[in-house]
């Protein structure tokens, strides 16, 4: 039994909040959960300007980078730049997700087959418009019951 239940959210930086919203909400189907704009009291006190999206059961706090943020090479579709977030879909929907990425003209790498002795099945790799690396996969353990994910919270 692990001593940590779950990851609850991540804060990542982007160059352009509007562009990020179009990608996460428009392309990936995330839902806007909250926002802190330039004028709220806590922003004036130093809190980041950010928007929060629920993507599946995960919360992304997407913050506006206050200065230059390095981008990976345009043709590099798989990488991490420190970290990469991966989302799982049912195996039966995996091909649909690939078709959706293709329709939305999101370049991706894959599908890549994972070793059969591990829990992952196949992955595709891509980036958001600010160069944050993402992954969608299906998992061999999709029928296993785990502890439930707590409710999302815009923390």
């Amino acid at each position: 039994m692990a001593q940590a239940e779950t990851l609850s959210h991540s804060g990542i930086c982007v160059h352009d909040l509007k562009e990020a919203q179009e990608f996460y909400c428009g392309v990936l189907g995330a839902e806007m959960k909250g926002a802190v704009n330039f004028y709220t009291e806590d922003t004036l006190n130093g809190r980041s300007v950010h928007q929060a999206y629920a993507l599946g059961d995960y919360l992304f706090a997407v913050a506006l980078a206050p200065d230059f943020m390095p981008m990976p090479p345009k043709d590099q579709l798989r990488g991490a730049m420190g970290v990469r977030h991966a989302f799982t879909v049912a195996k039966a929907r995996f091909d649909q997700m690939i078709e959706s990425l293709t329709r939305a003209e999101v370049p991706f790498e894959g599908p890549v087959d994972h070793p059969e002795n591990g829990p992952f099945g196949q992955s595709v790799y891509f980036k958001d418009p600010s160069g944050n690396f993402l992954e969608i996969l299906w998992r061999r353990d999709e029928d296993v019951t785990y502890a439930p994910i707590p409710d999302l919270d815009v923390g």
């Binding site: 692990a2 804060g11 930086c13 980041s48 950010h50 200065d67 998992r139 502890a147 923390g155």
Partner: peptide, 27 residues
């Protein structure tokens, strides 16, 4: 304890967080 996993990948060098990375974190 949930379905979530952490995958550690060993690399020669981890890119330093940019000066703008103060907001980058995971909870």
């Amino acid at each position: 304890n949930t379905r979530q996993r952490v995958l550690l990948v060993e690399v020669p060098e981890v890119p330093p967080y940019p000066a703008s990375g103060g907001s980058i974190h995971h909870a």
